[in-house]
Amino acid sequence: MATLGPSHYSPYPVAVYENILPPPPGKALLLTEVVDEEVAMREAAKAMLTRENPTIFPGPQVIYAWNEEAKEKARLIRELAEVLGAKIIPMVDYRPKYPKIDPEKEINPNHPNLTIWHNNIKACIFVGVHCHYANVALKIIRAETDCFTIALCSNAGHEDAMITLRDQHSEELKKFIEIAKEVKKEVK
């Protein structure tokens, strides 16, 4: 359980109450520090390559083939998973699912901790999840698990993730894959 913060009676740490805001354009956030994108990408790759059961959680914006970028990103995510030796567990939608989710195969923003506990996931990447649901899920994960969270966001990023990369599109994903390949050689 996370330490009680200014959010008082809630067990939830909320980064903005510790004065942590999303990184400015062109930068990334590594824990509480604003850093260069490459630095954050290296640390993200290292976390995924060195922690147990690394998993990528793709969201609806990349699962469904609704535009050309989504198709390209799906291909890149598959490639990234292979480089990182990561599992893929999808967040297909955001509904409170009845009667329950299968935590081995799905993640849900309303109780993302179930999937992380069940699969003993110690590092994960959120990609293609709408910002509100990513933020709701990231806060719960930070409170309930010891999973290292990484957000690849196409907008302004997520300060409740341990590493957040903002304005991430296909080009940035390609860059991340290349960095991951380098880091993989180093950590071996």
């Binding site: 939830y12 923003p109 309303n110 899920a137 719960i140 409170a143 309930e144």
Partner: peptide, 18 residues
């Protein structure tokens, strides 16, 4: 009662304030 955790509402409300 909708088969999800109370935590979602808490997290959601904090997210709006965030």
């Amino acid at each position: 009662s909708n088969y999800i955790s109370y935590a979602t509402h808490t997290s959601w409300q904090f997210e709006v304030r965030a």
